[in-house]
Write a protein that binds this DNA or RNA. Structure first.
Lengths: 201, 201, 201, 201
DNA sequence: TATGAATGAGATTTCATTCAT
DNA sequence: CATGAATGAAATCTCATTCAT
């Protein structure tokens, strides 16, 4: 049965299995045996490909953040409108993208967020991502309002997005992506309305 | 050392020690030995007073939620202004109360939030608290806007509050309570402005 | 509440409570807390009166054996017939005496028998008692048969009695004392029939 | 050291080690560490193969009962004489078979008997076995005597066999298998003599 | 005399990791 | 490449005993 070129396939299998396991029983009970069972492989293989459980968790978190970045990025590339609202709207939509909003992704994201408070390796990933989001929002807000206020707007919107995710992760049926986006966009428009009535068409 | 009537004292000590331990190393590594060390007692006493680790965690979460309820409640009782804004403002201020915003409280709150996704006992507590907050916000918003919109406003404000907490828990220096309140109040005023220009002076 | 002269009362309470606890959950789970609860006192008192759990267990076993000895002894004193059958019959009847046949007594007896295989203190008690029973049976059998056969008869009857107890301890409804005695007496008569047809009237 | 296909070997090793440990220190002190040491493996492996200590104990009891059944069964298959005495004799001989009479087996058997009074899982095994023995004896006795008496005979002989085991387990040198069989056979012959003088040659 | 608070040793169980096959 | 046998560390829980009150 051993095949060559299995590495990328196995890695992907195991990362997906990790999210499923976290979705199922939580990070605390996501043992490598359980994860391996989800992936249909043996437990030993995890150390083989990821050096250990921590490596797998880190790779999984990286994947989540990458997916998020891609969801935002692809939307921004498709914009034909260069307005701040369009850019920031792409951030919102990207954050409530399908791949992000699935039960496994949301719970895994929250689990990692919590875990990252005490694990430097995860904290670093978290930080990089967070700063990028914040800088992005700041930049676009600052095009239509003073920097000090742009910073507050960025903080507020980031909090709103994360808060919606947070509550969505706990909701039995999963996050209501559409409703969440409406709320986020309404907030965005209010933030913009005060300073750029001419831009917010 | 044994004294009589130690039960309430020990219980409180152990609950505080639990928050400290979670603040220090996270829920996953908050072992009963570490918690007991924080409290300056032996590990066995935890089972004696709480029946086991789960009992202690549940009691700790209950304490957090009770503190939160009290912080909101005491503010509401002190209101001499019966306006919706004043009531909802009390909710915001209560949520960013001192006891809530401390590093230990914030991290413990987040840890329990995450944990409650897979532990029915914690989920129940979470749920009761959450519903109370939501119903409260809904009611006061509904005094100045149609019910459908009041629900959205409640959802939005709850998300904003939780989001600010969430991000505050991760911030190294702890949550900037004042800044967070400013953002929350600004959002509140925007929500109210659309429907009750006469109230929001 | 402390009273003087409580010692004999407490000791008896605790010994009875030990049998009840063993009857209820078995020797392995008869913790001192449980025993104390049965007696309606605190756990600490056990060490006070018996020096520790082992002391209590030893005292309890001693009680069981004493009860047994008394049951046999009182019957023998009441005999007006000096025949071997009468004496041996008193042994049988004593062994299936009410106080011995109760659920608690039977289970406790068996628990101690098993336990005594690895606890010298209990083994000593067991041994003394056993030897007395055996010597007794041997003596009376030897009055009507050669010594070698008397020994076998004593071994057989002792095995029969213990076997009936053993099986009675496991029977849900407890030992059927009457049926057991019938079997034991039938066996006794068969043993005697071969050698002393003139005695067994 | 890890090999494949070790499961049946390890299971057998651990079951034997359990009996040795019980023989050595009794069921109460037969910890998994001690059992594992007897088997020359680590303690963790017990949970791996048996799911926990209870699983191991149950498997060990099952083994004892299976050995007993086999010892009786193989003797009955070898019979060329179909008389009730021959069949019942096979039961007696099987019960005092070598594998059954070893110190470890006898002490383990008694320990489980006692333990089964409070552990449903063991009680079930005990019951099945006991009923089979009783039904067997009943059937063969009933071929030469009325059913009511056959039942008593079966009860008596079962008690005699168990009683001899019980006392043998406590005897320092172990059970005298030959002497025990003589007593049991003598009892059997007496039971049969009353009803089938023509069979008991 | 009696309580129950407190400890600490010990037992079971879980689990990440290693490694021979 | 992949398995799963095996270990050993760590965590929780139980419980007999001690001791201040």
């Amino acid at each position: 049965m051993p095949k060559v070129g299995m590495e990328p396939i196995r890695r992907q299998q195991l990362i997906s299995a990790t999210m499923e396991a976290i979705d199922e029983v939580g990070l605390a009970d996501a043992t490598i045996v359980r994860i391996a069972r989800h992936a249909g492989v043996s437990a030993g293989i995890i150390s083989h490909y990821f050096g250990g459980k921590d490596g797998l968790l880190e790779a999984t978190m990286r994947q989540i953040l990458t997916d998020l970045g891609n969801a935002v990025g692809s939307r921004r590339r498709m914009l034909d409108d260069g307005s701040p609202r369009a850019f920031i709207g792409a951030v919102i939509e990207g954050n409530f993208d399908r791949t992000q909003v699935t039960g496994p992704a949301a719970k895994t994201w929250l689990a990692f967020w919590t875990s990252s408070m005490h694990k430097p390796a995860l904290a670093r990933l978290q930080n990089i991502n967070d700063r990028r989001l914040y800088a992005n929002l700041c930049y676009h807000f600052s095009r239509v309002m003073p920097l000090a206020e742009a910073r507050n707007a960025a903080r507020g919107l980031a909090a709103m997005i994360d808060g919606l995710w947070l509550r969505g992760a706990l909701t039995p049926g999963g996050l209501d992506a559409e409703g969440a986006q409406r709320l986020a966009f309404a907030y965005l428009d209010q933030l913009l309305a005060h300073h750029c009535s001419t831009f917010a068409s």
